[in-house]
C-alpha cells in the first residue's frame, strides 16, 4: 500500500472511528488492555474462586485451620519447632489453587483469594473515584470557563485552595478525620467503613488537576468562531454547552480517564496501606501490602504480590492512556508517533 493509500485508510471516517482504528493498531493499547482484562476478570471472579476453588472465606480468621498437603495435615499457622520454638509462621505458597496457592496471611486467610477480592475493591474505588473526579471537574471547568467573571473567580479560587495542599497530605487528612465519624450531606450519611468514603475523598482531591485544563480549554472554545456564531444566532447557554463545547472536550476527557483512574487506584492503595482507606475485614491491595509488611522476612509473597498487581495495573492504565492520547491527537498521527 502506498503512503497516500495508507493515510487515506487511516483518516477515512468520523474522528471517533479513526481513533478507534488507530487504537486497534497500537500494540501498547492491545497489550495493556489484555493485562487489564485479565486483572478485571480475576477480580470479578473472586467469589467464585473463593467458594468453588479455594473453599475458603477470605474475610474470616482461620488461625487454627489445618489443610492436607500430600496426605499430611498441616496447620495454616505453624508454630516454630526449631531452636527456642519462638514465633508462628503462616503457611507459604502451596502452588495448589485449591488451597493457599500463594500462602496465608497472619490471620490464616488465603492470600490469593484476598488478592482477587482486593482487586475488586481497588479497581472499584479507583474507577468510581476517577469518574467522580471527572464529573466534578467537567462541571466546574465548564461553568468557570463558559460563564467567566465572578463565577470563574470563585471556582478558580476554590480550586487554588485545594491545589495548595499536597494531594496525599489532603487525602490522608480527610481520611483520618472522616474515618471516625463518616460523612454527612443532609440526609445522606456515608459510614466510616463504606467504600463511598475513599471514593469521595479521592474524587475530590484530584479535581483541580483535571478541572483547570478543562476550564482553559473551555475559555479558548468560548472565543472560537463557531461558539461566537452560536451566541450570535441566539442559542441558549445550555445548547451551546452541550452541542458546541462538550463535544470538543470529550477527547481530552478520554485521555484523562485512564490516567485519573490509575492515580485514584494508587491513592486508594496508599490510604489503605496506612489503614485509613478500605477497612478490615474487607481487602484491597493496599491493606494486603500492610498485612504483608509484618511478614516481609518470612512470607514476602504476602506483601510483594499485591505490589506487583498495583504496578501492573497502573502501568497498563498509563500505557493505555498514552495510546488513547496518540489516537485522539491528529498531530501525533501525522508525526507518525
Amino acid at each position: 500500500m502506498s503512503l497516500k493509500q495508507n493515510s487515506e485508510a487511516i483518516f477515512s471516517g468520523s474522528p471517533g472511528k479513526i481513533a478507534l482504528r488507530s487504537l486497534r493498531k497500537d500494540k501498547r493499547a492491545r497489550i495493556s488492555l489484555a493485562v487489564l482484562g485479565v486483572i478485571v476478570f480475576l477480580s470479578l471472579t473472586a467469589p467464585l474462586y473463593s467458594h468453588f476453588v479455594a473453599h475458603t472465606n477470605p474475610f474470616q480468621s482461620s488461625l487454627d485451620a489445618e489443610i492436607m498437603i500430600n496426605g499430611v495435615s498441616t496447620p495454616v499457622l505453624e508454630a516454630s519447632t526449631t531452636g527456642l520454638g519462638l514465633g508462628v509462621t503462616p503457611i507459604g505458597p502451596t502452588w495448589n489453587p485449591s488451597h493457599y496457592f500463594i500462602g496465608a496471611d497472619s490471620q490464616g486467610r488465603d492470600v490469593l483469594a484476598r488478592l482477587f477480592y482486593g482487586g475488586r475493591s481497588t479497581l472499584f474505588i479507583g474507577i468510581s473515584a476517577g469518574l467522580l473526579c471527572l464529573l466534578l471537574s467537567l462541571l466546574i471547568g465548564i461553568v468557570a470557563g463558559y460563564f467567566r467573571g465572578w463565577v470563574d473567580a470563585i471556582l478558580s479560587r476554590v480550586l487554588d485552595i485545594i491545589w495548595a495542599f499536597p494531594v496525599y497530605l489532603l487525602a490522608i487528612s480527610l481520611s483520618v478525620v472522616l474515618l471516625t465519624s463518616g460523612l454527612s450531606f443532609g440526609f445522606i450519611h456515608i459510614g466510616p467503613g463504606s467504600f463511598a468514603l475513599p471514593i469521595f475523598i479521592i474524587g475530590v482531591v484530584y479535581v483541580p488537576y483535571i478541572a483547570r485544563p478543562i476550564r482553559g480549554q473551555v475559555l479558548a472554545l468560548r472565543e472560537s468562531d463557531f461558539v461566537r456564531a452560536a451566541v450570535g444566532s441566539g442559542a441558549k447557554n445550555s445548547t451551546i454547552i452541550f452541542r458546541e463545547i462538550l463535544p470538543n472536550i470529550i477527547p481530552s476527557l478520554m485521555v484523562f480517564i485512564p490516567i485519573i483512574v490509575a492515580l485514584a487506584m494508587l491513592t486508594e492503595s496508599a490510604l489503605s496501606f496506612l489503614s485509613i482507606g478500605v477497612q478490615p475485614p474487607a481487602a484491597s491491595w493496599g491493606t494486603i501490602i500492610n498485612d504483608g509488611l509484618e511478614l516481609l522476612y518470612t512470607r514476602p509473597m504476602v506483601g510483594v504480590a499485591p505490589g506487583i498487581l498495583i504496578a501492573l495495573t497502573a502501568a497498563s492504565l498509563n500505557l493505555y492512556g498514552d495510546a488513547v492520547r496518540d489516537a485522539l491527537d491528529p498531530k501525533s498521527r501525522t508525526r507518525g508517533n
Binding site: S80, G83, G85, L86, G87, V88, S106, L295, Y297
Partner: peptide, 19 residues
C-alpha cells in the same frame, strides 16, 4: 520483637534470648 523475626532469633541467636 517483630513476629517475623522471632523464629530467626530463636534459632540463630538462641543463646542471646531470655524469656
Amino acid at each position: 520483637i517483630p513476629a517475623d523475626r522471632l523464629n530467626e532469633i530463636g534459632t540463630k541467636f538462641a543463646s542471646q534470648v531470655h524469656i
